[in-house]
Amino acid sequence: MSTTNTEEGSLTKKDFVTENDVRWCPGCGDYAILNAVQRTLPELGVPKEKFVVVSGIGCSSRFPYYMNTYGFHTIHGRAPTVATGVKSANPDLSVWMVTGDGDGLSIGGNHLMHLLRRNLDINVLLFNNRIYGLTKGQYSPTSEVGKKTKSTPVGSLDYPINPLLFALGSEATFIARTSDTDQKHMVETFKAAQAHKGTSFIEIFQNCVIFNNNAFDTVTGREVRSEQALMLEEGKPLRFGENKGIRLNGFDPEIVELQDGDDESDLLVHHSKTNNPAYASILAQMAYPAFPTPFGILRQIEGRETYEDALHSQIKASQSKGEGNLQELLTGQNSWVVE
């Protein structure tokens, strides 16, 4: 998102904290995300009154109540539609949408797809904890096959959806992933999302301490993350661990171990602005245990017009030929006079 910098430096995190008690479970990853968002917003140069936080239903969707901005806690799965209405009505607002894996990809998958393809300048934060939390622990559309939950006592049947591939297939112009365990990375990612003109889709690995605890430990755990997390840096080769990198073999990525003095030149170099979605698709499919999991901006495509700009420029173009006159409209072109 890009909005005019009008009050740079005058806001602090405190300005975005509400008086409401935050009522997530102790240890929930949502606290860290809330903290990161409250740290990010004052640094964007956007006046506080221009922020609008819109959410659906679920644990994550309580988010607006804890942000001292304009906010709208809507209904299950439909936040993208309300956010679209807000932004279409007033493109000057900075709209942040908060959703989860159930809200955004199950009941609301359709709306999320259309928000992304329309490319409204909205920042979408999808908290992925791979479980239904607020309904107390049923499997979600991002849960792994065979997930044993209260609704699937002998294991879930359906194959999970990959949020990043979903976004890519929906023509999202900005696709990123971050984790509730990494404050600095979250703030950087949110800032990049704000800077992007168009819909920014961010998957956040978020730990549900009650119903799916440690779901991401194999990737983001302190001991393993240097080996399992692939931190994407623009223009740099894909490297992780002590000495490992990713190169392409045909259409398939493969892990290579670099010995001292080895040349990095056959490693894949990260270019998020590549128009061809094939590269982002390769990154999006890299997952534990076969590959390290990528974090950062997978894809950002510039220059595609936003929906709200197109909407308002059509109106302006029409009005440049003269604004509508109500009396002329009512009378029409085929009236007659009765004396």
Binding site: P80, V82, G85, A89, L93, H111
Partner: peptide, 16 residues
């Protein structure tokens, strides 16, 4: 994209 969305867009615009 559907009837539900049409209503959501209207509610969002009304809020704005």
């Amino acid at each position: 994209e559907d009837e539900i969305a049409a209503m959501g867009v209207a509610i969002g615009a009304s809020f704005a």
